[in-house]
Design a protein around this nucleic acid. Structure first.
Lengths: 484, 484
DNA sequence: GGGTATTTGTCCGTATGTATG
DNA sequence: TCATACATACGGACAAATACC
């Protein structure tokens, strides 16, 4: 403790933990004339906190040891204060356990300030109506909880090494497993060195924007939607909208633009649901090969779920010129809360990534990396994908048949992914939405994803990832009535 | 004590328990004229009891506390009596045990020492023969594996909701728990709304750079080291080096510069180990308050571990003008592989964060967020911090005493954190390093952290977070020889 | 679930300062 | 100045409760 020269007031401020991890931040003012003994000050502090309701009944006080250590005073001093408190009924001692604020509050009823942090009411995003046709929702009812929990446990006890800093690109084991998986299921050709694991797609798109030359001009699909457009804007880079034709991004439109980085979702284009055919893919690759600074960003969105046609190998796998940045995520296939996504970078760009000196650590917990790696290695992930794919397939079939039966309704883009387009030319898009809403069903139109006029009029984007199977018939009935 | 009106004799009768449940029944007669001092009366009483054989040899007297309390007199009074008794051989004191009636042989072969030799603590990675003096290493041997695994399991099964997309700032529960923790533990004043949880310090520094005005000029400590310098450069922002004085970042130097965002580590400056005193803190805050666009970035580096001086509440807590960005991390306190850090933003900057539309999702797994939240809520985290702090404290003490004993060596900046400075002016800094290296010990000098010449010549930065306790003596021996 | 290390209230002796005659 | 009584503060030892593995 610091005692200042005579007359001077010295401020001691200190902190400590207590009980369910509370910490006080107390300021004790000690005068060199010892106006108030330490234990008295302590006593006053605590009794005040208790009276004011900041320390609520049942809460634990810090242990005498912890308190004395953190304050740098003797345990007995603390003990004296605690004795006073317990003598006056503020606290009760539970031997070898702690001091707890008394149950009854014999003191002023205290204008209790229980304004502990109130959890904000569900925001619009997490608000779940009965009919969830959002394209962002995914079904997690099949999530392999027990495998996850079991692997977690295994992993935690596996090696203390996993507590240490890991590779900034992601743990090698994970990247190796991912490599195998991608090569086998997505025709991606890469080695673990080419992979970067990061905390979600958004993080990785930021990385891409930083890695590509500053002069890059990003081209995104129109209609389309991707976090990358926001990212590009956030970083002050140029952005162009490239129109689609039936096979995906129009090469003609791309050539007419000054775009150097084309962002595409060839697997199951959002929102049109187009799967880019092989010949278009090769034309796209040709475009990229024509200039040094041209790149393709392949977002392998929703590639995990296909129902009819065989999955088409990734653009990345067809590329021989190191022009494709491949990206995928576990957030959509496994669960949105899993913040893990991956990039496969061409060697040249990987060199630029390595030069980014501010990225020295992975953004993903190594435990979670290890769990996912085992998921991949043991085939749990692919089994899970099959099961969920099945579920989605059945749901899609039920939904397509139910909605397709409505007069005037046509379905398209439904051969994969977890959304499709619904067209009903009897009404305009706003009318469709409005009438559905009156029936209690919230639907989204195609226009919001379009810069130019939508390629399909009177069309809605229907997501069924989060839809409850049991209400499909009901929803179809309601919509039939609404659109009559 | 009751003093009766003059002349009247007052009888105090009392009884108390002691030892193996013995009970005295004593009567003391006190006269108001104080014919005999209390201690004298007590002395007479006990000596009489002993002589008369009522108190037999080996029996224990009541403790001074118990006696004084039950008699309503001061412990010193009892003590005076006991001193007399023991001075005259009636009783012997067995320290920390009690007073015992002597047997007639005046001495007892003093109570056996239980010989409590310290078992050398075997750290988990004890087989490492390396001398790890890196400042980046931390000790994870005490990591609460089972709590972690258990909570993980709990959390996985707790609610399917945790699989869904979470709040981009981090789950509310975590932020609330963090809020409580920071407020109590670090004197940070904030509400959950002010907090952003992200995938590590590096990610968050990137965020800060993006949130602050583009015209910002960042000032970092010299000597110093922070990911933010790389980040600032990566984003093409301006960077200045601000010199330190003994109290941390020099306000004079800061004022001379055009810096608008001052990055500081007030808790335990790296590498100098300076803890910024309160008056410097308030001057820094004043600097920030003087202009609209000025901000302080408070990196609460190594605040978790302090050994001597009392922790000083955070700058953020002292700030009333919304000028401080507070940042902390679990990576260093819990384990490097845990990729979770947090920002506390002033309202104004939080608004700018919310406007960043490319950041729609949290970068941290919700499972891990939930686990950490429970860690905080249940006090596991604070207990863990205490335990690790203890470990570091002991290691620091051993290391300081071992290295400090080397001729010419001075230690500084060792009152907290997990590194300190070692100065040995017998050699130049390169010589110190070279000679240590020849002895097989890799050490780092102060200069690499300095833009200008180091404030201390012949100085090394010694980290001991990852050091094996068992080799401290050996290392000290080697260094003694190397620096002879 | 059982064993061990740590934490914790409790009790203890001790040292020093101070007010009051 | 001294004796008396009290006030304040310190840290060791112990056993039960608890955390951790």
């Amino acid at each position: 403790m610091i005692i200042a020269p005579s007359g001077v007031v010295e401020i001691l401020s200190f902190r400590f933990f207590y009980g369910v991890n509370f910490m006080f931040n107390v300021t004790i003012t000690l005068r060199d004339d010892h106006t108030l003994p330490l234990y008295e000050q302590l006593y006053r502090y605590f009794s005040g906190e208790i009276r004011s309701g900041k320390l609520k009944s049942g809460e634990r006080l810090p242990s005498k040891r912890a308190l004395s250590e953190h304050l740098g005073i003797s345990r007995s001093t603390v003990e004296a204060a605690f004795d006073l408190l317990s003598g006056e009924g503020y606290v009760v001692s539970r031997p070898r356990s702690g001091y707890f604020v008394s149950d009854f509050s014999p003191f002023e009823p205290s204008a209790h300030e229980p304004s502990r942090h109130e959890e904000p009411r569900v925001s619009a995003s997490s608000e779940k109506s009965e009919f969830d046709f959002s394209t962002a929702s995914v079904d997690v009812s099949l999530f392999p909880y027990s495998s996850w929990a079991k692997l977690n446990k295994e992993v935690v006890y596996s090696s203390p090494e996993l507590l240490q800093r890991g590779d900034r690109q992601g743990d090698f084991k994970l990247r190796a497993a991912l490599c195998d998986f991608l090569s086998q299921y997505r025709g991606v050709s890469c080695s673990p060195e080419d992979i970067i694991v990061g905390a979600g797609m958004e993080y990785l798109t930021g990385l891409i924007v930083r890695i590509l030359p500053e002069s890059s001009v990003f081209g995104i699909e129109d209609p389309g939607y991707s976090a990358i457009s926001d990212t590009v804007r956030s970083y002050g880079r140029e952005l162009r909208y490239i129109s689609l034709d039936v096979n995906g991004m129009s090469i003609a439109a791309l050539r007419k633009s000054d775009v150097t980085a084309a962002y595409v979702t060839p697997s199951h284009q959002f929102p049109m649901g187009i799967t880019m055919p092989a010949f278009r893919r090769s034309r796209l690759l040709n475009w990229a090969a024509e200039a040094e600074n041209r790149y393709i960003i392949e977002d392998d969105y929703d590639s995990e779920f296909r129902f009819f046609s065989r999955p088409i190998p990734s653009l990345q796998g067809m590329d021989v010129n190191g022009k494709v940045i491949y990206m995928g995520t576990f957030s959509r296939s496994l669960a949105p809360s899993i913040r893990m996504a991956y990039l496969v970078l061409p060697k040249k760009l990987m060199a630029k990534y390595r030069a980014l000196s501010d990225l020295r650590y992975s953004t993903v917990s190594r435990y979670e990396q290890a769990v996912i790696a085992e998921f991949l290695r043991r085939g749990i992930y692919s089994r899970y994908l099959r099961r969920v794919g099945n579920l989605y397939g059945k749901r899609r079939a039920a939904l397509v048949s139910a909605l397709g039966a409505i007069d005037g309704v046509r379905i398209s883009g439904a051969d994969g992914g977890i959304h499709f387009l619904l067209t009903n030319e009897r009404f305009s898009e706003p009318e469709l939405i409005e009438r559905a809403l009156e029936a209690g069903i919230s639907l989204r139109g195609l226009s919001p994803y379009c810069r130019l006029s939508p390629p399909l009029a009177s069309t809605l984007v229907v997501g069924y990832g989060g839809l409850d199977d049991s209400i499909i018939e009901k929803a179809a009935g309601l919509l039939t009535a609404a659109w009559k």
